[in-house]
Design a binder for these strands. Structure first.
Lengths: 149, 149
DNA sequence: ACTAACCCTACCGACTAAGTAGTGTTTATA
DNA sequence: TATAAACACTACTTAGTCGGTAGGGTTAGT
């Protein structure tokens, strides 16, 4: 799996909205400023997230976005799959795999890719945005720098 | 981590040469045929692998490639890093990370990416091409189809 | 000398990522 | 009801990468 800017932005946007869950509407501009994301690009991403049912919005003056689900019910993996596609080191599912795996090698690497995929899924499908909010607040409270290199 | 065709081809080429380890020279054409890789593309890949010290070659008629190291001393991770770059879900090492991680989010996702990276490395840095050869032969001997969907 | 093989560089078409730009459409509120 | 703030949508752009091709150059066995 690889996280592109698009996916990274989406995760940050959902985190931002999770931190404002049940606190009213949040304007795109606010998210863009706080998370340092180009606003017009963010606009498209939020639209996609809304299309997938994660966000609701209100148009017009005083409008904005808000989370359509509880943060604890959104797992990181959902957002990653939505933005990046399947979580697997190789695009090797059923039919399309046969193109890569010929008779000779008999796809001897496949079990490894499956292993990596399931380990990765074990991480991203376990963690919710409620967890991330908790981490975020803990970190800010304690002013920890341990996560920085 | 994501495996591109280039990386996939490199792994297959090294596997092929591992299966012929200490059995003389192997022509590019043979590898290309067996592994179903476009020969001119494979040529470039083998050149890169040679440049990195994994292969030796003999030019001229009756020439060919051969492995420069024992299969058991080559880990998959080495080849993957060589062809694909660093194994990490995010290009987020030291300085370059600061571009993605601003004050607001304080890179709250980073520990997860590190987790995934180390799990992935735990797989690819543990397995050698000697292991893959063993798997390959076991599979061919038993005519197992369990790895195919 | 001839030819089989590796060596090297350049090029190319298609695709994607990461935006930008511009124009609609809706709604609160003065 | 005019206005402005905000989301909605579509189109375009620009740079880079991926997955190759093409075409010689060089070396070495016969």
């Amino acid at each position: 799996m690889k996280i592109s800017f698009r996916g990274d932005y989406a995760l940050k946007a959902i985190l931002d909205l999770s931190l404002h869950y049940n606190k009213g509407l949040v304007r795109i501009q606010e998210i863009a400023d706080r998370q340092d994301i180009p606003i017009k690009y963010l606009e498209q991403i939020l639209l996609a997230l809304k299309g997938a049912g994660y966000l609701n919005s209100q148009r017009g003056a005083k409008g904005g976005y808000y989370l359509a689900k509880e943060p604890k019910k959104i797992k990181l993996g959902e957002i990653i799959r939505l933005m990046e596609g399947p979580i697997s080191p190789i695009t090797c599912v059923s039919k399309s795999c046969y193109k890569r795996c010929n008779e000779e090698t008999k796809c001897v690497f496949r079990p490894l890719w499956n292993k990596i995929r399931s380990l990765t899924e074990g991480v991203v499908d376990q963690v919710s945005f409620a967890d991330m909010c908790r981490d975020y607040e803990t970190k800010n409270k304690k002013k920890l720098d341990m996560y920085y290199i």
